[in-house]
Simulated scan of single mutants.
Amino acid sequence: MECVIKDIDFARLYREHLARSGRKAKPASVWDAKAAAMASPGTDSDYAREFVRRVQLHASDTVLDVGCGPGTIGLALAPHVQQVYGLDYSSGMLTALMEHAKRLELNNVAPIECSWDAPWEQVPVCDITVVSRASIVNDMDRALTKLNAHTRKRVYMTHLVGGRFQSREIAELLGRPDTSFPDHMYVLNMLYQRNIYPTMDYIELPSGLAGSRSEAEFIEKVDTRFGPLSTAEKHTLSRWYQQQPEYAKQGGEPLRWAFMSWQPN
């Protein structure tokens, strides 16, 4: 029997890939601790600007910001809409969200303490839903169902390309195990199986290894991010650096986020 793409169980493949990655979900307390140190929601970052400029809004819209953190996206959208709901499972992040909203004199922001895995009965249905860098979930199939059920007009989501925060090519160069998260292609295929056809482009950010002024500094950055390097690994990096020094100074390939948007059916 011929297999077509709609017969493939991408929901199961996603869960299996996530299990192989070894990902362990961080408890809310980890994010609570990080929130306490955040002096700014980061709404003026290059990433936030690139995300926000792609979102189409109307003044009467309500927005659900899933995995809102300290409000990087939600607070940037709030001046342009009627209401923003920030959803996060970290009470510390929600406290930071509301402190930043008060500082910015935004009175149309409300917190919702909830996780991806919890029931969403108390989560309002909104015109627009945004999911910014918060889509590594235990069950993508269930997450997409929730997003579509709670969105009237359009969902905007970024998902990691290649499933790595660290450089894929450096990891492969060093022969490190593949611990990548499920990448954006799972999401695209699962939406396609729902007869949803998203638009997509990419937000590119400099690699975490960018900015090295010398070979020694580059190797030191790799050592910090990938763990202690052996002498042989340092020699391998040295040869790679010398073959393409300008590219190496950029940190190799950029970090890419797939920016997807769709209308729930």
Rank of each mutant, 00 (worst) to 15 (best):
Y47N: 08
A11C: 05
P27Y: 04
G22P: 02
K34A: 09
T43M: 15
M38V: 05
A33D: 02
G42M: 12
G22T: 04
T43E: 06
G22Y: 09
P27Q: 13
I5Q: 14
W31H: 02
A35W: 00
R23W: 12
A48L: 08
A28M: 04
A28S: 13
D44I: 04
D44Y: 14
T43A: 14
A39P: 01
Y14M: 06
G22K: 05
I8Q: 03
M38R: 12
S45A: 15
R20I: 03
A33S: 08
P41Q: 01
Y47W: 14
A25F: 12
A36G: 05
M38E: 08
A25H: 07
A39F: 06
I5T: 12
A33V: 01
E16V: 04
D32I: 11
K34H: 10
S29K: 12
A37S: 09
K34D: 08
R49Y: 12
A35V: 00
R15V: 09
D9Y: 09
Y47T: 07
K24C: 06
A25N: 06
R23T: 04
T43V: 14
K24E: 11
G22M: 08
L18I: 04
D32T: 09
F10D: 00
S40H: 10
K26C: 03
A19R: 11
P41K: 00
R15W: 06
Y14H: 07
A48I: 07
K6C: 08
R20P: 01
S40N: 11
D7R: 11
K6M: 06
A28V: 04
Y14A: 02
D44N: 15
A28R: 03
T43F: 15
T43D: 06
L18K: 05
A28H: 01
D9K: 08
R23N: 11
L18Y: 05
R12F: 02
D46S: 15
R23C: 03
I8F: 05
R20D: 07
E16I: 05
A37P: 01
W31F: 13
P27C: 09
D44C: 11
S29P: 03
D7E: 14
R15Y: 10
W31E: 00
A35C: 04
L18C: 08
L13S: 01
I8S: 04
S21L: 11
S29W: 02
K24Y: 04
P27N: 09
I8H: 03
S21V: 07
I5C: 09
S21A: 13
D32A: 12
R20W: 06
D9P: 07
K24L: 10
D46K: 15
S29E: 14
A33C: 03
A37I: 10
R23A: 07
S45N: 11
K24V: 11
E50H: 14
D46H: 15
I5G: 07
A11P: 01
R12D: 06
M38C: 05
A25I: 10
W31R: 00
D9T: 09
G42C: 13
A19I: 04
G22D: 03
M38K: 12
D7V: 05
P27E: 07
A39L: 14
K26D: 06
A25R: 12
A35H: 00
H17N: 05
I5M: 13
I8R: 04
K26R: 14
K26V: 03
E50A: 15
D46R: 15
P41E: 01
L13R: 00
A19Y: 02
R12A: 11
G22V: 04
A36Y: 05
A33I: 00
D44M: 12
P27F: 03
A33W: 00
R15C: 13
A35L: 01
